[in-house]
Design a protein around this nucleic acid. Structure first.
Lengths: 203, 203
DNA sequence: CAACTATTTAAAAAGCTTTTTATCTCAAGT
DNA sequence: ACTTGAGATAAAAAGCTTTTTAAATAGTTG
């Protein structure tokens, strides 16, 4: 499509302006090995650069937090981990490298390349700072829940992409459940268009 | 009936294959005496081979557990007991012998032969590992209850023999309420035939 | 006269435990 | 007044608990 047609199209259907900031990326990792959590705990507990917690009677995973990059992880004896707190997929990979180094120091044998799967992306954002009439939105949005006395945000379950958005009167939002940044953008755009269609914006 | 006719019969009506393992036999016992539970508790509490518990304000029976055979019993001041955890009727009898010995050491006079009545047999089993369509089974089985969100098994109340079976999608089952091993077999066979008739098996 | 107290046992699904993160409202405690 | 925490959302990991069924026993409570 030639550029002049694209420009004309954009003029006819101006893009809805919005903002998105990825706040948390959760990933599951498989190191294809087994880990002695008791030894790991005893060895790492004295390291001031780390936070380590292990209470198998309440939770089977060992909690390990590192500072660079600032990431938390749940380490399981099966060799699988869960990383949380990353601000990007790239940061998840850096985190895996660091966690792997630490686990090797406690005697864990890691030969294969770790399998990394992003399981959830949480993002905050806004619809160009336009405030929302949540009562009206709750009335017209399918699969929405709005109980302000329980929680101030409207809970909106989007089918495609399969995500959940928390919409606030201020026009701010939280999107969770996405597996890629693209899905986050699509979720916010779809929701923005729908809110516009049902005239849920105050202006 | 001559063997050749038996063989021919078996060929015409091949036995449905299934498995049964008795997991728990519950029996009530009457020692025809009275038992001082406070004395029994104080005397037996120091024996490391036994587990003893007695809280009359919450339950009137004294709880006594032995290791050989591994059986638990509820002992009442009336001289009656309830044995649970046995894997066979024979094991119940061994349990009564051991329990009797222990109760004599705490001053209980036992002259008559104990009356032993098997009250319930619990068994696990399978229908030759054939998986079941529980939705279909629930539709056609009389006296059946199936609420997967509450419990994954279908509850089937058999009239003859009067038992209750828990049927699972995997083809595994639990039979309870029977008073003899024969009743367990009959219950499983009857249920197997019925499930076959209503085509509840996936293959 | 039920229903609860307590004991045992299998099945399997679902729910809880923990971690992270933004958002906003209301409550309690400093 | 001011801060903190809980309320709701998603996702993974793995271990535990709850759910259901039957039966006897014998106290208490509704």
């Amino acid at each position: 499509m030639p550029q002049y047609i694209k420009d004309r199209w954009d003029k006819m259907t101006p893009k809805l302006d919005y903002g998105i900031v990825i706040q948390n990326v959760v990933a599951s990792i498989n190191l294809f090995t087994t880990i002695d959590l008791v030894t790991a705990y005893q060895t790492l507990i004295d390291d001031d650069d780390l936070f380590v917690s292990y209470n198998p009677e309440t939770f089977p995973g060992l909690i390990l937090k590192i500072k660079k990059p600032k990431i938390s992880s749940l380490v399981f004896s099966s060799g699988k981990l869960v990383l949380t707190g990353a601000k990007s997929t790239e940061m998840v990979h850096e985190g895996v490298v660091q966690m792997t180094k630490i686990l090797r120091t406690v005697g864990t044998k890691i030969d294969e390349d770790p399998e990394i799967i992003v399981q959830n992306i949480v993002a905050s954002g806004h619809f160009n700072h336009r405030t929302i009439n949540l009562e009206l939105a709750a009335l017209w949005l399918e699969h929405s829940m709005y109980e302000p006395e329980q929680f101030p945000g409207l809970i909106y379950r989007l089918a495609e992409p399969k995500t959940v958005l928390l919409l606030f009167q201020s026009g701010n939002l939280v999107c969770t459940g996405a597996k890629t940044e693209s899905q986050v953008r699509q979720a916010v755009e779809n929701t923005y268009n729908t809110l516009d269609e049902i005239n849920a914006f105050d202006f």
